[in-house]
Simulated assay, not measured.
Amino acid sequence: MLLLTDEAERGRRLAKQLGAAHSLWRGAFEPLPSDAGAPQAVVTDVAFDNEAAVHWLRRALRALKQRDVPVVCLLRTEDRREQVQAYALGATRVLPPGASDQDIIRAVRALQERSDTGLAGEALRSRIVEASASFDDMMSAGQNGEPPSLQTVTAHADVVLGAIKQDGVKAWLSALRSYNDVTYQHCLTVTGLAAAFATRLGFCARDRMRLTRAAALHDIGKSRIPLAILDKPGQLTPAEWTIMRSHPVIGYDLLARRDGFCPEELAVVRSHHEMLDGSGYPDGLSGREIGDLTRLLTICDIYAALITPRPYKDAMSATDAYELMVRMGPKLDADMLAEFRRIRDDVDFDPAA
């Protein structure tokens, strides 16, 4: 194992705990040691607000890029842009500030033991990084009270559609398991599922783009929800749920200010939590009041939420998640859900594993 760090004292402790065979200190700007060979894994612990440190890290990782060596990156802050930057540098897994030594060890071992090498493919890695960056731009615009540009959303959807076409939904979801940011992971999961669903249903290019863009935008309202609620590591209180449930209307109002988004896309953003039996929110719509694009996206959204782990719950297996949705009966479009079974079969791995 190779440890790359810019803090000597912290690095010595990590090296001891992790059993790292080699440690590099940024202060000396050392190249990879000649006897390092191809380490089984790399752990990076570098401050991203230091340009010299990031340059050194990029140079050190470049030599390992072609060897498919898993890289676990430890973040120093909660800044979401740091996670995007870490993946752009070549991280396979990113851990949040405060990750314990055991968390790091488990992450390294899990990556070493993975038989699925989809993320190691450079094309898919590049698409994940590009999609993450464009999604970050979309959320940053929302945080500033501005709707994302149509060009950014379309480019994001193009990347996801290309990844699904080239690598398949299984590889896409498998790659996203390394994300620790709940909102990013969920939205990119929903977008991948929607792109795969549209393709499976034989949608024309225009309708594939519409559904994929709508999926990318469906939770844009969460950009205006306080992070203390959005990233809370536990169940929300009733008052917090009231705030969280406001995100569809916030997102709709945000996008309605920008020309270019079609009515169907806006309807998805506002109504993706509506249920056919009228039990959803924010408007209590039912039956024919809910359009087809929204019905499709709601299935993808619920499925993604069920197969994705949260701090307060384990992920469901693909099979259990689908069966639970079947038991939701009149809340979901039964015909569309039956078609979605083909996507569930395509996943072909247990996302809870």
Rank of each mutant, 00 (worst) to 15 (best):
D137P: 00
L188M: 09
L255Q: 04
A175E: 01
V159H: 03
R258M: 01
V326D: 00
T117C: 06
A21C: 08
P39W: 07
F340R: 04
E130G: 11
A91Y: 05
A205L: 11
S286L: 06
A352R: 09
H273T: 13
L3Q: 01
A141N: 07
D292K: 10
D207V: 05
E130D: 13
K232I: 07
R341Y: 14
I225S: 02
A157P: 00
A352N: 07
D219S: 14
P330C: 09
G284T: 08
S279D: 10
A321L: 08
L124I: 15
V94R: 00
D116T: 07
R109T: 15
I164N: 01
Y179K: 11
A123N: 13
L95N: 04
R342A: 15
D333S: 11
L57G: 13
L254A: 07
T237N: 12
S132D: 02
A131H: 00
M336K: 08
D259Y: 01
T44P: 02
M328H: 12
S132Y: 01
A196M: 04
R206L: 06
A175R: 00
R208A: 08
A38S: 14
V169A: 06
V129E: 02
T242K: 11
F135M: 08
R344F: 09
I225H: 02
R81G: 00
T183K: 02
A157S: 15
L124D: 02
L32C: 09
M1W: 10
R80Y: 06
M325C: 11
D68E: 10
Y252I: 03
Q85N: 12
S246F: 05
P31Q: 15
G192Q: 04
S271H: 09
H22I: 10
D350I: 08
P282H: 10
Y184A: 14
T298Y: 05
L24E: 01
A318D: 06
C300S: 09
G260Q: 05
R344T: 12
V108Y: 04
I105G: 09
E30T: 14
S271W: 01
Q102S: 11
A133E: 05
D345M: 15
P70T: 08
M138L: 08
Y312G: 00
F48G: 04
H218V: 01
C73S: 13
Y87T: 04
H273E: 09
K16Y: 14
A53K: 12
T242G: 13
T212P: 03
G278A: 13
P351R: 05
R344I: 10
S126E: 10
C300D: 00
P31I: 15
L75C: 14
R270T: 00
E339C: 09
L276K: 03
S132I: 03
T152N: 02
R93G: 01
